Computed example of a mutant assay.
Amino acid sequence: MAGVQRPQSIHQSAAPHVYRGLTGRVRDVLEAADVRINGSRPWDMQIHHPRTLTRIALQRSLGLGESYMDGWWDCDALDEFFHRLLTHGANRVSHSPLQNGLQWLGHWLFNRQNLHRSTKVARQHYDLGNDLFEAMLDPSMSYSCGYWRDAETLAQAQEAKLELICRKLNLKPGMTLLDIGCGWGGLLEYACRHYKISGVGVTLSQEQASLARERCASLPVDIRLEDYRQLEGRFDRVVSVGMFEHVGRRNYATFMETCAGLLHRRGLMLLHTIGTNTSTSRHDPWIDKYIFPNGELPSCAQIARHAEDWFVCEDLHNFGPDYARTLRAWDRNFVAHWSQLADRYDQRFHRMWRYYLNACAGAFQARDIQLWQWVFSHAGGREEVYTGAR
Score class of each variant (00 low, 15 high):
residue 239 V to N: 04
residue 249 R to T: 11
residue 207 E to Y: 03
residue 204 L to R: 02
residue 221 V to R: 00
residue 229 R to T: 03
residue 235 F to M: 00
residue 195 Y to A: 08
residue 269 M to I: 06
residue 253 A to H: 15
residue 211 L to I: 14
residue 206 Q to C: 05
residue 218 S to W: 13
residue 227 D to M: 02
residue 264 H to M: 11
residue 225 L to F: 08
residue 260 A to M: 07
residue 213 R to M: 09
residue 246 H to F: 00
residue 233 G to E: 13
residue 197 I to K: 05
residue 257 E to P: 04
residue 236 D to E: 11
residue 220 P to G: 13
residue 207 E to P: 02
residue 263 L to S: 09
residue 215 R to S: 09
residue 254 T to C: 07
residue 242 G to K: 00
residue 262 L to M: 06
residue 232 E to N: 15
residue 227 D to V: 00
residue 265 R to V: 13
residue 270 L to K: 04
residue 231 L to T: 08
residue 259 C to V: 15
residue 231 L to C: 10
residue 205 S to R: 01
residue 266 R to S: 15
residue 201 G to R: 04
residue 262 L to I: 09
residue 215 R to I: 11
residue 243 M to Y: 00
residue 210 S to W: 08
residue 247 V to H: 01
residue 253 A to G: 13
residue 270 L to N: 09
residue 197 I to D: 01
residue 235 F to W: 11
residue 250 R to E: 12
residue 197 I to W: 00
residue 267 G to M: 07
residue 222 D to V: 10
residue 193 R to K: 13
residue 239 V to K: 02
residue 228 Y to N: 10
residue 211 L to V: 13
residue 258 T to M: 09
residue 197 I to A: 05
residue 207 E to A: 12
residue 222 D to T: 15
residue 200 V to N: 07
residue 216 C to V: 12
residue 195 Y to W: 12
residue 202 V to G: 03
residue 249 R to S: 12
residue 257 E to T: 12
residue 197 I to R: 03
residue 222 D to L: 10
residue 247 V to F: 01
residue 225 L to M: 12
residue 237 R to P: 07
residue 265 R to L: 11
residue 242 G to C: 01
residue 259 C to F: 03
residue 199 G to D: 04
residue 203 T to F: 01
residue 229 R to G: 02
residue 263 L to G: 06
residue 210 S to G: 09
residue 262 L to R: 05
residue 244 F to L: 04
residue 235 F to E: 04
residue 204 L to G: 02
residue 201 G to A: 07
residue 221 V to D: 02
residue 261 G to P: 02
residue 253 A to L: 07
residue 217 A to S: 14
residue 234 R to F: 06
residue 264 H to D: 14
residue 205 S to I: 04
residue 249 R to C: 06
residue 249 R to Y: 10
residue 239 V to D: 04
residue 198 S to N: 06
residue 270 L to E: 12
residue 216 C to D: 13
residue 194 H to F: 07
residue 256 M to F: 13
residue 222 D to P: 00
residue 215 R to T: 11
residue 253 A to D: 15
residue 211 L to Y: 13
residue 241 V to D: 01
residue 223 I to D: 02
residue 201 G to H: 04
residue 261 G to N: 14
residue 235 F to Q: 00
residue 263 L to D: 07
residue 204 L to A: 02
residue 201 G to W: 04
residue 215 R to A: 11
residue 250 R to G: 10
residue 251 N to W: 05
residue 247 V to R: 00
residue 256 M to S: 13
residue 196 K to Q: 15
residue 227 D to E: 03
residue 202 V to D: 05
residue 241 V to I: 15
residue 246 H to D: 01
residue 199 G to P: 04
residue 204 L to H: 01
residue 219 L to W: 08
residue 193 R to S: 05
residue 234 R to V: 15
residue 233 G to T: 11
residue 215 R to D: 10
residue 265 R to A: 14
residue 240 S to F: 01
residue 216 C to S: 14
residue 248 G to Y: 03
residue 209 A to C: 10
residue 226 E to M: 15
